[in-house]
Write a protein that binds this DNA or RNA. Sequence first.
DNA 1: GCCGGAGGTCGATGGAGTCCATGAGTCAGA
DNA 2: TCTGACTCATGGACTCCATCGACCTCCGGC
Lengths: 149, 149
Amino acid sequence: MDSIDLRLIDLLRENARSSYAELARKVGLSAPAVHERVGKLEAAGTVRGYRADVDHEALGLGVTALIGIIEDSGADTDDVLAAVRAMPEVESCYFMAGVESYQLIVRVGTIAELEQLIVRINRTPGVASTRTAIALSTKWENRPQPGLG
Amino acid sequence: MDSIDLRLIDLLRENARSSYAELARKVGLSAPAVHERVGKLEAAGTVRGYRADVDHEALGLGVTALIGIIEDSGADTDDVLAAVRAMPEVESCYFMAGVESYQLIVRVGTIAELEQLIVRINRTPGVASTRTAIALSTKWENRPQPGLG
DNA sequence: GCCGGAGGTCGATGGAGTCCATGAGTCAGA
DNA sequence: TCTGACTCATGGACTCCATCGACCTCCGGC
């Protein structure tokens, strides 16, 4: 993991569909060398995959919300987690320090769907209560943190 | 935007480095047809880009936190936003309904760096106070919501 | 000094990306 | 009904890329 690897990661975070030839030109190596480096980064788990960044509104998922889950005392955290994992609306899930055990980032089409989702989460065994905050707009998301290489 | 477009988006959210030939095989079209469709999705802004999904811990950014910002009454929201935008640690930024005007997802290397970041945010003109919650672990992030096509 | 491994370049080749001409299907209007 | 315009697919052609194998270079250990 040297500075060239870090630059490759930066470049792939900017545009994951860059060709190896293009990456090679930018880091000053040959395409096979870049190919091997990227393969090693993938094998090591440093690069987990490549995702298209989509406009959720255009896909009919215009409502973004953060939901905090407060568990019952004595709840089985794994059960709660499994239940939440089964809900496709939950895009991200963090296990938190503090009163709220989990913080979810959810994506739905309408406020009505959000309401239904909240009800479903609240009905989940082990969930004592939830706290929801709605995002009125997304200023930016998943912005790559550059300049590490 | 038909069901083939939605499938292409799903496939690119699974693996943004899929070749056009591979996508073509999966959706049952020719490679040029897929190329044109994807180009149109990009031009329309439905697909905003392609990002490598990295292991932040491996990059020395093992600490994830959510920071809520409560603004001063009379604060210029744009100024606060600009200040936050200039902080590379802030990976995502949502403008929220509720007491906390902004919710940030931040990524730093150590708790000490998080402390410094919080201090910096609190010193920003227009920021009345912040509320920080630390993620002990990330269960999943940016999980694509499938099955729309 | 010599060996072995890591990690690079170069060259070849099969396959992919992409431009372009063409054809099928759909719809509006004469 | 026929026609023209439009959309969106295909197939061919050409260029460029991915990827493999062969070889080179540097460096640390014996």
